[in-house]
Design a protein around this nucleic acid. Structure first.
Lengths: 97, 97
DNA sequence: CCAATATATGAGCATATATTCATATATTAC
DNA sequence: GTAATATATGAATATATGCTCATATATTGG
């Protein structure tokens, strides 16, 4: 076990907080399928566009997703494979833990 | 990507919620070192015994920790290696993500 | 330029969460 | 038995969180 400083523990808590909400997990699962714009994410996750946008902002600030603007649309994608890894580690636990 | 039902997503969110708080992460890190009783967990995590007990109850209900009573003390330990795996996957992300 | 569309943002509100404090319960020592 | 110790629990409170609604900011098409 690596020694963790107080601020690192706080950072880790914030990371897991991103995964601690069903709406955000849906968004992450959708983006795991590939890049997607806000409107379609909202539709697929059954969320308002506003709520979706708020969540995406949080995920972007935590560097869990990236965004790319194309015309008036903004395409989001997972920032890196670590995100899927965390998601899947948790998922494996509840499915066959 | 496995198809996840609504209630499974909710369950997954609850699992990650357990890791979304610095106090609980400290408790988990302490228990990763080995079994420990409530008083010593509280001391090591710099939490009140009451707060510690409340957190342990939540972790126990989620089957992330086990408890074993010895006299008037109660020893807690991580329920299984999945818990460490989730913790470490997140930790690796923030340390070298 | 103006209207339509896509996304972002801030305020407000309702609910959830973490903590403390007081108290309860269980066990041991005397 | 009673006192002391370890842990658990419920209520209260303060703060955080997620959503909606209204509005703002692009961007495109006419």
């Amino acid at each position: 076990m690596t020694i963790m400083q107080e601020f690192q523990i706080q950072t880790l808590a914030e990371l897991f907080s991103a995964f601690s909400d069903a709406s955000r997990l849906k968004i992450i699962a959708i983006l795991a399928e590939g890049e997607c714009n806000v409107g379609r994410i909202a539709e697929a996750a059954e969320l308002s566009e506003s709520a979706t946008s708020h969540h995406l902002r949080g995920l972007r600030q935590l560097k869990l997703v990236r965004s790319r603007k194309v015309g008036r649309e903004v395409y989001y994608s997972l920032h890196d494979d670590h995100v899927i890894e965390i998601y899947e580690t948790g998922r494996d636990h509840i499915l066959h833990g």
